[in-house]
Amino acid sequence: MSITSTEAPTRGLVEIRDVHKAFGTNQVLKGINLRINPGEVVAILGPSGSGKSTLLRTINHLEKLDGGTITIDGALMGYKIRGNQLHELREKEVLRQRTHVGMVFQNFNLFPHLTALANIIEAPIQAQGRDRGEVTAQALALLRRVGLEDRADAYPRQLSGGQQQRVAIARALALNPKVVLFDEPTSALDPELVGEVLDVIRALAKDGTTLIVVTHEMGFARDVADRVVFMDAGNIVEEGTPTQIFGAPQQARTKEFLSKVIEPAFHL
């Protein structure tokens, strides 16, 4: 189903080179360079408006690039090279590429008119053309893995926020993606539901899937991430191991941000 922890992860190498993106005159990404190794868990931190969600969305080509390239296991996302020119891919090819990248949204975005199980099996059947029986078996296994095997026939509105997000994670994993992107996966949850979602992501991290997590959960970033990337105003300000970033940040902007988000929590 997915790579087991015993073998070294071989897929899920993400290379982001000089990525630029603007919305109108607003430069959101100003030349991002980042290499994420197979099986690595990277947490992206930063104040709101720093471009971290946009960066995440460029990886599966939900946002087109204005400049630069993104490759996953060497394959260009959203473009192809013909001669020495980048050509935009047609939608069909982009959709096929996206099946290698799972995405989990802040607001879950489960399909409300489909049951949990139907939410999970829709894309593997329709986008990957896989056999319904095989996909259903995998979906039930995934639901068991996120602790919701008894809720397969529940509609999203009959589930709590935490349960919905766990179904959304199972939905993303059903495509057997090389990389899973998390866009603030716990921001819309009640505080007591955050833990159950983070536990699922934590288990995934141990599994050897490449994870890129935009988050405001500093404790989670410190415990789970192999590397922490701090972004501000469309640039990567600083990156390093959690110990480096949380223990001894080098940049003034990082220190300022961390003091704002961490200090109050310690005083409480």
Binding site: L62, T99, F105, N107, E122, A123, Q126
Partner: peptide
Amino acid sequence: DQGQLEAAAALGIPPWRRSTRI
């Protein structure tokens, strides 16, 4: 909700299926 289209696109669901099923 726009998020529905976005989720369908992120999952790679083909456009016709996206319209009729989602």
